[in-house]
Design a protein around this nucleic acid. Structure first.
Length: 571
RNA sequence: GCCCCGGUAGCUCAGUCGGAAAGAGCGGCCGCCUCCUAAGCGGCAGGUCGGAGGUUCAAAUCCUCUCCGGGGCGCCA
């Protein structure tokens, strides 16, 4: 509808240009939904923006545009208002036709092709598999998954991916933590579990599972393990890891893999229950094994962006907008985490994606620039990579802020949140705010007043319509011209906005637009429901009304689907 | 010190590629179930859009400065 009217204005402008009244056709025609009923359905400021260049008063120019406006079944009339706005009125018949369109399209209503089949890779969550996901990861999961669904609806070819950090020190610490718990459970008495190892209860579960699978294959004397350890906490853990590796020899790999695989499986299950399924799980270790790290660094070196200093190898990131240069290979040998990132994005670029979307937690915002710098240095277009940060989720119990730290084991798990408020409420809540807005989540409030959550309001609208249909099925093609109530018109108008919402949400990676839209649409329906009877009205009017709310039901279901939230038939 | 995000109604937030008289939910107050699910609806009250300049026919929206809050700045991952 919007596209069509924009096209009409473009044709009018083009006609003026041919006549010589305009020097050139407008680059972009801006048209928006009118806020007031008396301003029609759509309004354009075209005449105001062109007036200066045309050397002509805006209202006069608007008049000339109107004279050239082609006829269309979508356009009843156009008016000039205020300083020179062009207000466009869509005929009622067009809205009536729309109801049929929606019902015929079914779950396809709202899908568009603004994406043009572009291949997009959406990477999100990517939490270290060193512990269960917490509520912060949940936000990334809900956001990333909704973005991917919306992109697909808008005609993008979107693939989702989880990057597994299955290499590096944090994972060694997890393996060590599991091993120590294992020894503890085996009866080791003089064991001092380090405070900076992973404290969570799940580590004990992993140790228990390790014993179930391998009995006492990993038993060692704990006593000598703790002799003469360094004072400083981090150094002590590193020394313990080193002794663990020496002590276990070949079987360290089995310990490590056991811990890693169990954690990844736990994360996969957790996300699966949350309705988030990834197309691909990408292993960091595969970058090492497949030689991608060497290849990407070699490519950077060949392009002259790697230099040596203080015995380490540096990537000249500052030449590409980063604050400073970054180490990729340490003086002591071994590549940095950043080198893996370079290789990972090198790999992403080579897989043929036209756009690469990284969704990070706000604490990773520093990486955006350096990763972008590396992609550019490797010869890929800077605009291909886009990064969206998801701001923090602060948890409160009453007025007390809950401190979260994965290592301390003092975090609130996504699983716990899901259990308390439910998947639907959690998902809807997570995406109700823009990604760059902090969320303060009061767990007590979520538990005691869950009906305050707008998700129920929207779902209830859907369930109510289904309930009506259990008593009377909607007919196929009623006469929608019978729908003359203002509330009916408001509902139709809002239904017609849905494709625009999807398109805009995709263009700006903004699922919250869908959430807010659904709230409005549900409000339209509830108001209508209370004002006019459906079943008890005259047969023909009844059929028209049932058809209208069927279109509303479909749109609510489609929108909820984009957010990964269920559309229940009963509540 | 530098970088990122935010500051809009009592609270939580939309609106920010400039457009016509600032929007919603919650909370508060007043009403509505002999009738399709009251998890609902109708109405009322509530605003210097953090502050100051600037650009413009037009600024919550763009620019500059400034104040306040949150987060980030390792040869950690």
């Amino acid at each position: 509808m919007k596209h069509h009217l924009t096209e009409l204005l473009a044709q009018a402008a083009e006609a003026l240009r041919r006549r010589g009244a305009l020097a050139e056709a407008p680059k972009q025609i801006h048209i928006e939904r009118a806020r007031k009923r008396e301003h029609g359905d759509f309004a354009s400021n075209l005449a105001l923006t062109l007036a200066k260049a045309a050397g002509c008063a805006p209202r006069k120019l608007a008049e000339e545009l109107l004279a050239e406006l082609p006829q269309s079944k979508w356009l009843e009339r156009a008016e000039i208002a205020g300083p020179g706005f062009i207000n466009l009125f869509v005929p009622r018949a067009a809205y009536c036709e729309l109801i049929d369109d929606i019902r015929r399209a079914g779950e396809k209503y709202g899908r568009g092709n603004s994406g043009g089949g572009q291949k997009v890779l959406v990477e999100f969550v990517s939490a270290n598999p060193t512990g269960p996901l917490h509520v912060g990861h949940g936000r990334g999961a809900a956001y990333g998954d909704a973005v991917a669904r919306i992109l697909r609806a808008a005609g993008y070819d979107a693939a989702t991916e989880y990057y597994i950090n299955d290499a590096g020190r944090q994972m060694d610490i997890l393996a060590l933590s599991v091993w120590l718990r294992y020894l503890e459970q085996g009866g080791a008495s003089d064991l001092q579990f380090p405070e900076n190892a992973y404290q969570g209860e799940y580590v004990r579960d992993l140790a228990g599972a390790l014993r179930d699978a391998h009995t006492d294959a990993f038993e060692k004397n704990a006593g000598e393990l703790f002799a003469d350890l360094p004072e400083e906490n981090e150094a002590r853990v590193d020394e313990l890891i080193s002794r663990c590796k020496t002590s276990l020899g070949e079987s360290y790999r089995a310990l490590f893999d056991h811990a890693c695989e169990a954690m990844v499986e736990d994360i996969r299950d957790d996300l699966g229950e949350f309705g988030v399924h990834f197309d691909n799980w990408f292993s960091e270790r595969s970058l090492l094994d497949g030689g991608d790290i060497e290849k990407s660094l070699e490519e950077l070196r060949a392009r002259g962006h790697i230099y040596e200093k203080d015995g380490a190898q540096w990537f000249a990131a500052s030449a590409f907008g980063d604050e400073k240069d970054r180490v990729v290979r340490r003086a002591g040998g071994g590549h940095t985490y950043f080198a893996s990132d370079i290789a990972y994005h090198f790999n992403k670029n080579r897989r043929g994606f036209e756009r690469i979307l990284d969704i990070f937690g706000a604490d990773h915002h520093g990486y955006a620039k350096r990763i972008g710098a590396s992609c550019e240095a490797l010869g890929y277009p800077a605009e291909r990579l886009q990064v969206r940060l998801v701001q923090f989720v602060a948890l409160y119990r009453g007025r007390v802020k809950v401190q979260m730290s994965t290592r301390g084991g003092n975090f609130v798990a996504l699983r716990e949140l899901r259990g308390e408020v439910g998947n639907d409420a959690a998902r809807f809540f997570y995406v109700s705010r823009t990604n760059d807005q902090h969320i303060d989540f009061d767990l007590d409030l979520a538990k005691t007043q869950s009906s305050d959550n707008p998700v129920y309001y929207v779902q209830y609208a859907h369930a109510r319509i289904c309930s009506v249909f259990r008593q009377e099925k909607p007919a196929d093609s009623p006469d929608y011209q019978l729908l003359t109530e203002p509330k009916e018109f408001a509902l139709m108008q809002n239904l017609s906005r849905y494709p625009e919402i999807v398109e805009q949400a995709a263009a700006t990676f903004a699922p919250h637009l869908v959430a807010h839209y659904l709230r409005e649409l549900a409000a339209n329906f509830h108001a209508y429901y209370n004002a006019h009877p459906f079943l008890s009205s005259a047969p023909q009017l009844r059929d028209a009304r049932l058809g209208l709310i069927d279109a509303a039901r479909q749109t609510l279901a489609n929108g909820l689907g984009l957010l990964g939230v269920g559309a229940p038939e009963r509540m």
